[in-house]
Nucleic acid binder design. Structure first.
Lengths: 126, 126
DNA sequence: AGCTTGTATCGATAAACATCAATGCAACGC
DNA sequence: GCGTTGCATTGATGTTTATCGATACAAGCT
């Protein structure tokens, strides 16, 4: 996912993405584009021990167990989390490499202030 | 969008998001969850002068003009870009506050190494 | 005023997605 | 062995979304 084909962090804010890069990146953002998955991810990421049992996640939502399982699969296929069955239970944990990469992609280089006008220039469209 | 109701950067990786925060955040990620919009955003953000005319964006895609306009509207409603009509043409520019905020949300605090196992623990699900 | 060009909006359609109930599979306890 | 519990997969359904053609709006030109 997101291919090691790129040097390190193409940037998004520094150079136009080509079609392939954009398609790969969009898959990860799509995984984040749902409130349930965002809450699942934050519950997993913020867990003290670094791991969460599915049995601790499911009751936090007003959704069926298959739906939660579906969302977890989505997050896992995006490379944001991974899991392991341990006896009866399945534990999930964050893969910080992916969130780190996203943060880098959304960060503009310090030396390049983007030359943005930024403040709404009198009469900008609503 | 994303409400100033929060202190600064709730985190996503440090504490579980509540339902409202997750819903707001998901709207922004939804705007990024499309390859066309990602390419549009990167074309706008990486522009030297900080502004791009729609007439420079549309021909870069194999899509109809209404479709590009629709995607730009989506990015604008997410607070990622803004625009202004100037004579015949409409110019778009990045709102770096939003990308900065997203980068912050995806960044884990230095003092909190998340205690993740990270390396695949023998026999992790495929 | 009319014509032309650039951009946004509208209405329709097909594809993608979130959700559920039903079912399957894995591990434990009896 | 059999039943139970935890989680994943399947199939169906309603909703959302990407896309287009047609049209509307805005600004400049003649």
């Amino acid at each position: 996912m997101l291919g090691q084909t790129q040097e390190c962090c193409p940037g998004l804010l520094t150079a136009p993405l080509d079609e392939e890069q954009a398609t790969e990146l969009s898959k990860v953002f799509k995984a984040l584009a749902d409130p349930v998955r965002l809450r699942l991810l934050s519950m997993i990421a913020s867990r003290a021990g670094g791991e969460v049992c599915v049995c601790d996640l499911t009751p936090a939502f007003d959704l069926s167990q298959p739906t939660i399982s579906h969302h977890l699969k989505h997050l896992r296929q995006a490379g944001l989390i991974d899991c392991e069955r341990r006896g009866t239970w399945v534990y999930y944990w964050l893969l910080p490499e992916m969130t780190d990469r996203l943060a880098g992609i959304l960060t503009r280089p310090a030396g390049q202030p983007l030359a943005q006008p930024a403040q709404t220039p009198a009469g900008a469209a609503s």
